[in-house]
């Protein structure tokens, strides 16, 4: 999914950059690429894990919300819709700087997350339905969202032009390994968001309340915590994280059509299970490991890259189903 290297210099420079000498430089490059893509995986999986921790179910519409975040970012920086779809050639009258567009796209995705909760989750939660039904209804919500995007904006892929960051140089060269500015940006944004989320979860009343609902919804309600509000909050945060991840991927690679998010959502499951379902630090660690593992796949075998996440996922499930940092799965009698 991630190109090994994207160089915009002359052909000769591009060759030396895309095929660096084997050895330290090459490893360094893998490390950089892996960490940068891993940071986005981490953001994405954090959203999954927030919802899982409060509800104990997986929101399969998460990938669709990620897609919407990418599209919103693209529209907000002033990108025009392609020739297909109902909104053909339409364009927002504004052209926001990338930072603002990303934040607003995150907010829009948070609203979509709230909508998914209201339509696909709340009716089932009020009836105490079995988990299987959440899986189907959230998938249905994802299918609706993805096809809505396709109807409005067509099936073509969009990418956020690098000129969006015109003020910044496109890459920092460091001893032969290439660090793209976008990669630094991915790492910075992801670190910032993870730090803020952790601070909020551990240090604020709201964060503690969310954790209490995750631990035991009934007791939390007895203690006067509005668990419904906390669940909505988790969906809003989860949507925000997915939307930001979508915008960042749109900038660093591209948004390869509306169905793109579904594939990303599946890989995100791998990250989620690897780190441990419901564990916040686990999602971050899982994301980084997944990014690195994919970056380590040599170019000759790049066709197998998409399989790495699932192979890891499968092995983890067989060997350590609770994931790296998850709590052991308790079987209730």
């Amino acid at each position: 999914m991630w190109p090994r290297c994207r160089c915009s210099q002359t052909a000769a420079a591009a060759v030396s950059c895309c095929f660096p000498e084997p050895g330290v430089v090459h490893l360094l490059q893998i490390l950089i690429n892996g960490l940068a893509s891993g940071a986005v995986y981490a953001l994405f999986a954090l959203g999954y894990t927030l919802v899982f921790s409060v509800l104990g179910v997986i929101n399969f519409a998460h990938g669709a919300i990620f897609t919407i975040g990418g599209y919103l970012t693209y529209l907000l920086i002033g990108g025009a819709v392609g020739a297909n779809g109902l909104l053909a050639s339409w364009q927002l009258p504004v052209s926001l700087p990338f930072w603002l567009a990303l934040a607003l796209a995150g907010a829009g995705s948070a609203l979509v997350g709230l909508g998914v909760e209201a339509v696909a989750f709340r009716p089932l939660r009020q009836r105490n339905a079995e988990p299987l039904l959440y899986l189907i209804s959230s998938l249905g919500a994802g299918v609706v969202l993805v096809n809505l995007v396709q109807l409005l904006m067509g099936a073509e892929s969009y990418s956020i032009p690098a000129s969006t960051l015109a003020a910044l140089p496109s890459a920092l060269a460091q001893g032969g390994a290439q660090i793209r500015t976008v990669q630094v940006l991915l790492l910075l944004v992801a670190t910032l968001l993870v730090a803020l989320l952790t601070l909020w979860l551990e240090g604020s009343r709201g964060g503690k309340a969310l954790q209490a609902v995750a631990e035991d919804p009934v007791t939390a309600r007895l203690l006067g915590i509005d668990s419904g509000a906390m669940i909505r909050l988790a969906f809003a945060l989860s949507g925000f994280l997915a939307g930001v991840a979508g915008g960042l991927v749109g900038l660093s690679v591209s948004i390869a059509g509306p169905y793109f998010g579904i594939g990303y959502g599946l890989k995100g499951l791998g990250v989620l299970v690897l780190g441990g379902l419901g564990s916040v630090p686990g999602a971050v660690l899982g994301g980084l490991i997944m990014g690195l593992a994919e970056a380590l796949v040599p170019a000759e075998l790049s066709g197998y890259k998409d399989g790495v996440a699932f192979a890891i996922l499968f092995l983890v499930l067989l060997l350590r189903p609770q994931g790296l940092l998850g709590k052991p799965v308790a079987s209730r009698v």
């Binding site: 696909a120 039904l133 959440y134 998938l139 249905g140 919500a141 994802g142 299918v143 809505l148």
Partner: peptide, 16 residues
């Protein structure tokens, strides 16, 4: 496809 998605979305809610 949107209607198809709606069927999958509403099925579990209306007919659990």
């Amino acid at each position: 496809l949107i209607l198809f998605g709606l069927v999958i979305l509403l099925g579990p809610i209306l007919f659990p």
